[in-house]
Amino acid sequence: MPIDREQVKHIAALARISLSEGETESFAQQLSDILDQFEVLQSLDTTGVTPTAHVAGLDNVMRDDEPGSSLESEESLLNAPRRRGDLFQVRAVLDE
């Protein structure tokens, strides 16, 4: 399935990645080539086949809700690119 530059830009927006013109061009070609490889799946009849959720069949794993220790705020903030006091600093989310 061919992917054009407009579709690449749409996908990049979904993935929140800025792309240069060169990247847009090469991704259009490469994603098209990769999607061609996926066509083989369409030849396989999967009517009524249950999709795999967990390979060993585990589901809804429960444990007791016991309070325990967690990271100190200083540890949580250790790798913060920008902080103000004990808070992560972010850019404005709402317009002024």
């Binding site: 990645i17 800025s18 991704f27 994603l31 850019r91």
Partner: peptide, 26 residues
């Protein structure tokens, strides 16, 4: 905020990682 996030991901990730993120998003 959005532009900073998109630039962070443009410069922080290499080509194969971007390729797989894009493929998955698609």
């Amino acid at each position: 905020m959005w532009e900073a996030m998109e630039r962070t991901r443009q410069h922080g990730f290499g080509p194969e990682v971007k390729r797989r993120i894009m493929l998955g998003a698609f």
